[in-house]
Each structure stands twice: as C-alpha cells, then as structure tokens.
Amino acid sequence: MVIKKAHLPEKICSRCQRPFSWRKKWQKNWLEVKYCSKRCAGQRN
C-alpha cells in the first residue's frame, strides 16, 4: 500500500501555529502529538 503525501493527516502545532503532517515515527501516538518539532516542544511555555 502506497500512501501519497497529499493524503496524510495534518495538525496545527500548539506552539508555532504552523501545520505539520503525519510522520512514520508518530505512527503509534499520533493522537497525542501536539508539537511539530523538538524545538517547539522545548519552548512550550
């Protein structure tokens, strides 16, 4: 099964308010992902 990038789910980062797409490393916990990167997660004030 091939998944096209255009069909990947997206979310808005809680820190920078930019959209980010699903990544394979988030496959098991996509519902809990709030930040687009480690940088945003570290600046979550």
Rank of each mutant, 00 (worst) to 15 (best):
M1R: 12
M1F: 06
I3V: 09
K4Q: 02
K4S: 11
A6N: 13
L8N: 02
L8P: 01
P9M: 01
P9H: 04
P9W: 07
E10C: 13
K11A: 00
K11L: 02
K11W: 00
I12E: 04
I12N: 05
I12R: 06
C13V: 09
C13N: 08
C13L: 02
C13F: 05
S14T: 06
S14F: 03
R15K: 15
C16M: 03
C16W: 03
C16I: 08
Q17D: 07
Q17A: 07
Q17E: 13
R18M: 07
P19V: 14
F20V: 02
F20G: 03
F20S: 07
F20Q: 05
S21H: 15
S21G: 13
W22E: 04
R23Y: 03
R23Q: 15
K24V: 04
K25G: 00
K25I: 12
Q27F: 01
K28P: 00
K28M: 03
K28Y: 03
K28D: 10
N29W: 04
N29I: 10
N29F: 05
W30C: 07
W30D: 04
W30S: 08
W30K: 11
L31P: 03
E32N: 15
E32I: 08
E32Y: 08
V33D: 04
V33F: 02
K34V: 11
K34D: 05
Y35C: 07
C36P: 08
S37W: 07
R39P: 01
R39L: 03
C40Q: 09
A41V: 01
G42C: 06
G42W: 07
G42S: 15
G42L: 10
G42I: 03
Q43P: 00
R44E: 02
N45E: 09
N45G: 13
N45I: 04
N45V: 08
N45M: 04
